[in-house]
């Protein structure tokens, strides 16, 4: 078992699953509708191919439908896993049903922070907060599914805290 020689382990703050706040329920609908849009396009192309080719319809549309059902399953089941946790000194985001992933960025490593809102998200009045570090794009956080107001508050909060470390 891992041990720490300087500080007793119990004294190091742990990230608990209960610390995490869920995202807005509307976000699930936003995700579902954007997937539907994508699958409509794929489905459209697939249908056209059915008319053009000799193959039976299920051979082309079948995989598309199966993939769609699988995506929906993962999206709906995985939605409960998505969440963020705001602590005194860092922010964490977790997600992923098949490939769970949790990333934490300490405020003293935040480069900058912004609120973004896509065209579809605007319809749902939702926005994302993006937190950038110097560690490259794979280490950045993007917390989607916040109301515009909550997103702006979160950004101001992170910006204020990270500025203290400048």
């Amino acid at each position: 078992m891992f041990s720490n020689t300087v500080l007793p382990l119990e004294e190091i703050p742990q990230i608990e699953p209960t610390d995490f706040q869920p995202l807005e329920d509307d976000y699930l609908w936003l995700r579902i509708s954007s997937w539907c849009l994508l699958y409509l396009i794929i489905g459209g192309v697939a249908t056209l191919t059915v008319f053009k080719s000799e193959a039976a319809w299920w051979m082309i549309l079948g995989p598309v439908i199966l993939l769609f059902l699988f995506t929906m399953f993962v999206e709906i089941k995985g939605f409960k896993i998505k969440g963020f946790s705001l602590r005194e000194k860092d922010i964490s985001f977790k997600r992923g049903l098949l490939f769970y992933s949790m990333t934490t960025i300490p405020f003293n490593r935040v480069q900058h922070c912004e609120v973004t809102q896509g065209p579809l998200a605007r319809l749902f009045d939702l926005a994302s907060v993006k937190v950038y570090t110097a560690g490259g794009s794979s280490s950045d956080l993007s917390i989607g599914g916040l109301t515009k107001e909550r997103a702006q508050n979160l950004r101001d909060f992170i910006t204020k805290l990270s500025a203290e470390h400048e």
């Binding site: 098949l98 490939f99 769970y100 949790m102 990333t103 490593r109 570090t133 280490s139």
Partner: peptide
């Protein structure tokens, strides 16, 4: 810069996980 904790369903079943140090 930041730390990542990753766990695929295969790892989860066996109580394992991956760590990424950015």
């Amino acid at each position: 810069q930041s730390v990542g904790f990753k766990q695929s369903i295969f790892e989860k079943r066996r109580g394992l996980a991956s760590l990424v140090f950015y």
